[in-house]
Simulated assay, not measured.
Amino acid sequence: MGNRRTRKKGRAAVRKVVVGVTGSPGSLTALHRAAAEARVRGAELRVVLAWQAPGGELGSRNGLGPCALAECRAAAVERLRDALDTAFGAGVPGVTLAGFTVRGTAGAALVDTARDPEDLLVVGTGSRTALRRLVRPSVARYCLAHAACPVLVVPPSPLQAELDAAHRRNFWRIPLDPRELAR
């Protein structure tokens, strides 16, 4: 029969929309966008939370037993539930939803889950300060370089910049200027 693509309203049919979550505001923004894309395309929404054992793979080889790994996985499942509850509350996203916790790095887990060319991979971007880029590589860049399907990169919510500024102001104990409240 071959690998035929059916067209729906001028778009190639998407089998599934895959999105990664961590529970951060940026990942929740990406989750909402992925749910909207899945609704428009009539696709299944797969929500992935990647996790690693403390110390990464090296840490799991140096004495973490099956009990500790089971606890790490259980914590990842709970974080996924919390992220879905935060994003959708008691409501439903209006699409078929499947949640997955995957042991591994976020980029590799997402690329592996969205391995079909008909899939759509949705990733969020967080704040990318120089220190953060040095310590933690970009999941979005990894996905763009390695995915076999289209990748939609969702910028952070405009409110995120204001939230980051408030955190910096609180951290450095800078008083709030009342004129800022009048905006």
Rank of each mutant, 00 (worst) to 15 (best):
A83N: 05
D82F: 07
F100E: 13
R79G: 08
T101C: 13
R103Q: 10
T86Q: 04
V102Y: 01
G99M: 01
G91M: 07
T105P: 03
A106W: 00
A108H: 15
A87M: 03
P93F: 04
D85L: 08
V92Q: 08
A106H: 03
A98P: 05
A74H: 12
V92H: 12
A90H: 05
F88V: 01
F100R: 03
A75M: 11
D82T: 04
V77P: 00
T86L: 02
C72S: 12
A98W: 00
A98M: 06
F88L: 02
T86M: 01
G99H: 02
G107W: 01
F100K: 01
G89I: 10
F88T: 02
T96V: 14
L80T: 09
A76Y: 07
P93R: 00
L80W: 05
V77A: 06
A76K: 12
V102K: 04
A106Y: 01
G99L: 01
R79Y: 03
L84M: 13
R103G: 03
E78S: 14
D85G: 12
L84R: 08
G89P: 02
A83V: 04
L97P: 06
G89T: 08
F88G: 03
F88E: 01
A87D: 02
G94E: 08
A108C: 13
V95N: 05
A75G: 14
A98T: 08
R73I: 04
T105E: 12
P93T: 09
A106R: 03
A74Y: 07
A90C: 09
E78A: 15
A74F: 05
G89Y: 06
D85N: 14
T96M: 10
A75Y: 12
T101F: 07
R103E: 07
A108L: 10
V95M: 07
G89A: 12
E78M: 13
R81T: 14
G104V: 00
T96C: 09
L80I: 05
A75K: 15
V95K: 01
A108S: 15
A87S: 13
V102N: 01
F100H: 10
G107P: 12
P93Y: 00
A76Q: 11
R81N: 12
A90V: 15
L80K: 11
G91A: 15
G104R: 11
F100D: 10
D82S: 15
G107K: 10
D85F: 03
G104N: 10
L84Y: 06
G107L: 02
F88Q: 06
A108K: 14
R103K: 13
T101S: 07
R103L: 03
A106V: 07
G91E: 11
L80G: 06
G94C: 08
V95R: 00
F88R: 11
T96W: 01
A108V: 05
F88K: 09
V92K: 11
G94M: 08
L80M: 11
G94S: 09
A83P: 00
V95Y: 00
G99F: 00
T86W: 00
G91S: 14
